[in-house]
Design a protein around this nucleic acid. Sequence first.
DNA 1: TAAGCTCACTTGTTATGACAAGTTGATCGC
DNA 2: GCGATCAACTTGTCATAACAAGTGAGCTTA
Lengths: 240, 240
Amino acid sequence: MSPPLHISISEKLRHQIEAGVYASGDRLPSEHQLMETFSVSRITARQAVANLVSQGLAIAYRGKGVFVTPQKKVTYSLSSPLVFLEQDMARQGIAFSFENLVFEPIAAPRDAAVALGIDKASSVYLQKKLFRMDGAAGAVDVSYLIADLGDRFAPLLERQMTFPILAQHGIPIDHLDAVIECTHADYDLSGYLEVPLGHALMVYRYTAYSSNQRPVLHGSTISRADRFCYSLSTRAGASD
Amino acid sequence: MSPPLHISISEKLRHQIEAGVYASGDRLPSEHQLMETFSVSRITARQAVANLVSQGLAIAYRGKGVFVTPQKKVTYSLSSPLVFLEQDMARQGIAFSFENLVFEPIAAPRDAAVALGIDKASSVYLQKKLFRMDGAAGAVDVSYLIADLGDRFAPLLERQMTFPILAQHGIPIDHLDAVIECTHADYDLSGYLEVPLGHALMVYRYTAYSSNQRPVLHGSTISRADRFCYSLSTRAGASD
DNA sequence: TAAGCTCACTTGTTATGACAAGTTGATCGC
DNA sequence: GCGATCAACTTGTCATAACAAGTGAGCTTA
């Protein structure tokens, strides 16, 4: 009938957060304080905190305390015509930068080969980038670029975003096919994106086609759910 | 340097799941078996299992055991022209049904009033529906319908989906503005959607406009991330 | 003053123990 | 044969205990 103790405690804290008792970035009571306030053991107090963390409402730092998750969300417009991520961030007053993690030619994995319409053994360029918004890690992008374009723009690709490079050299992206889904952070991603294990992440899986209908780039952008969302309109010619 | 014990164990199990040692729906070793296999306490074994659950890879049932999460994903196309959810499910061979949880006129909350372009005190119809896919809970939809349409189609709205009703009576939806984001299940939602606390959920927040550019429906579809994804194409006139 | 150290406080990891509660199959009694 | 009961196994909840490890303030010392 009545929920377990740790749920009662975390629900109470959740309501207090939503009511503004604890504001964004505020420090929550320590485990020891929760133990005394609710007369429970540390196990139960920890479980209550873990519930909040798993709901994305709080984040714990060893040695410092537990803090209400700051919610600063960036919107990326998916409506055509294609808007460049950097420009979209700039319009919202976000300082955007990226760190190149990997850039190297490899044999195409199965899914990339299928999406790009090439043989499985063919060469493609694997790109891994870490996107930063206002300095904080916001997304990881893993993509596969067809070999001829990778060869041609190799030095540029490590310093600039792919779509703008292509556009500036007369190879604009004509359209994208995309799937948006949602997943949980595994151990590696939780390290890159500075989120707890299991944190919700958005996955934007795309295949980009050049104007002659040839697929040129296939990849996934995996972003922090608390920092990123996608907007779209089915209105013809919507620009926002 | 080396990760804690519970991470090592859950990562090992994760690799085994991904390698197919444990297939979708298979039962994982019990906590007691993990304790013996890895020579750890129950706390550590439980933490390892909790890691898998928080990553959406497994689900635990009291009295039964821990099982690999069955992954059966349904895709909903967001490309215009608007496709009805029921039809999109049917095309993928999914039995779709919904349960009407709430249908009543209320004073418009702030966000609905803004989205629908009406005064805050105005009346709107609050609808809450639970969507089922192949019998299992898949999504919760909470929406606000403008009063005159609610009055007019009141009896129908409790049994049928809103967009088809409107379309059949000469009020087709012209276009949608939408935002796709991602959140974590709170205590209530975890009950409705039969997922663990903190499980990743997709949120599709929409405002629908009739052909005279009037906003008629505003709401959110909150769906299980392991059962639902959205597809879209920026290709002009894409139908799939 | 400035560098470094210590200490108090924080969360993280792990062990042991106990009872609650849900499931399932075997066994017993009719 | 069939239903009820029980025993074994499962995960869930909660307590006590100890040590590891990161942070930060304040003190000590050069």
